[in-house]
């Protein structure tokens, strides 16, 4: 990851297990959304000049920018959005994939985990948001750069 992207805690200082626990404690749709807002706050905004069109992921209700770079045998991920809740979802995605190998990225069942967290509605067929598009993009880039 180059200097254009701010350091974030997801996938390193914050683990999947920790987020699984926090989401489990947030009972109800409102509490889960509030937690996503909070996670979104913990994911630093990108500088404006890093939010370039070539990093936009299409198919999302809000704008989502994604950057992936290979660092040795693993991938560094950074992401940003103008929506706080989508940033919260991006925090989950980063936690699952940041610092992982191409094989781990290809085989980790993110959809299953999102379901366990009680957030399946974000993966619905609605045009409403593009969580699926984001995950597909990450897997595609990781497999190409492998």
């Amino acid at each position: 990851m180059n200097d254009a992207f701010p350091d974030h805690p997801f996938g390193t200082r914050i683990s999947r297990d920790e987020l699984t626990g926090r989401l489990a404690h947030a009972t109800g749709w409102e509490a889960k959304n509030r937690l996503l807002v909070q996670l979104g706050r913990d994911l630093p905004d990108w500088p404006a000049d890093a939010r370039t069109d070539d990093r936009l992921v299409s198919g999302c209700e809000s704008r989502v920018w994604l950057a992936i770079s290979r660092q040795g045998s693993t991938f560094a991920l950074s992401a940003d959005s103008d929506s706080r809740i989508i940033k919260g979802l991006l925090a989950l995605v980063l936690t699952a994939f940041h610092g992982r190998s191409a094989n781990e990225i290809a085989t980790f069942d993110l959809e299953h985990w999102i379901g366990e967290l009680g957030l399946l509605r974000f993966l619905s067929a609605s045009r409403g948001n593009g969580l699926r598009a984001i995950v597909l993009k990450i897997r595609e880039i990781a497999s190409i750069q492998q």
Binding site: W29, N33, V37, R84, I85
Partner: peptide, 14 residues
């Protein structure tokens, strides 16, 4: 100071 999508999500929760 808020994205319309976020507002709609929180309204949906209610």
């Amino acid at each position: 100071k808020a994205h319309a999508f976020d507002v709609a999500q929180l309204l949906d929760a209610r």
